[in-house]
Simulated assay, not measured.
Amino acid sequence: MSHTAHIRSHRKPRRSASTLAVRAGVAGGVLSTLAVAGASGSANAAEPVTQTLELPTLTADLAAQAAQSADATEQAAANYQLQAERDEAAAKAAKQAKADLAEAKKKAAEAKKKAEEDARKEAAARASRTAARTTLSTTSSDAGTTTLGGGDSGTEAGGSTDTGTSTVGGSAATIVSFVKAQVGKAYVPGATGPSAYDCSGLVQTAFKQINISLPRVSQDQSTAGTQVSLSNLQPGDILYWGSAGSAYHVGVYVGGGMFVGAQNSSTGVVERPLSYDPPTGAVRVL
């Protein structure tokens, strides 16, 4: 015990029971309040907190802008596609143009080559005919004469006159003798003898007897020599029917107003007067 405990003024005053009860009640109330609050906080802590976000409202202007942006994107895509198609078409056209140009050049080269070859052949043929005519002219001037034909004098088709006894020299006599010897033989298209002929085949073979090479067909034979009037015919002249260069039939004038030709499959090779089938024109090779 304290040495002052016995002194009354120094003793701690005793708390009354009522005071202690009040203080205990207050403390209990505080503790109860804290307990309730803690429990409430624990309960609130256990529950999830939900936060609501409000999205911005899509106004009419924003909708219009979005639509315009979508249209622009779609138009751009369409433009890219169109440009790609145009580029592809241009590439194809360029490739085709290149191929067409190459083909045109090839055809032009072939045509030029053919034209040059035809010109060369024609020049060679002209030179050959000129040489043959020169040779025949020299031969005819040196050769003797042979009398062909006979009978009364008369007027030939076209107005030429013939005494009836034609004097034919050298090569012409050979041709006339040859064609007359073929009279009675058959007419066969494409034949050149010795047992059958067509019209141009007979003429070509006749001139081969004097080493003159004539074209094979009537069209070409009608321009193989110098054009002469039907009023000034000589034995050995080539007669043609149709236009010069497009004749459809030929024969050989043998003098005395007569000609020999391979007419058709019905008559064969015949000798006929010019009036039987008047020719259109004549050419002279000899």
Rank of each mutant, 00 (worst) to 15 (best):
A282Y: 02
T205V: 07
I210C: 05
M258C: 01
T155P: 00
Q83C: 08
L53K: 04
G201D: 06
T59P: 05
T223A: 06
G149H: 11
D118W: 08
A224Y: 01
S69H: 11
G154D: 12
T135E: 11
T226I: 07
N79V: 15
E85P: 00
T205A: 14
L20Q: 09
A21C: 00
S160N: 06
R133Y: 11
T33I: 10
A45I: 08
A109D: 13
L82R: 14
T134D: 14
T130W: 10
Y197L: 06
S265R: 09
R15V: 07
S243D: 14
A77F: 03
S266F: 01
G149T: 11
V252C: 01
V283I: 09
S160M: 09
G25T: 10
L230I: 08
A46F: 09
Y197H: 04
H249W: 00
E54Q: 14
G190W: 13
Y253N: 01
G154T: 08
A111G: 01
Q83K: 15
G225A: 05
V49P: 00
S40M: 12
T163F: 02
S9H: 10
Y253V: 02
V183C: 05
Q209I: 04
Q65M: 13
V183R: 04
K114F: 06
T59N: 15
F207K: 04
L148P: 01
T280C: 03
E88F: 07
I175F: 05
Q81F: 04
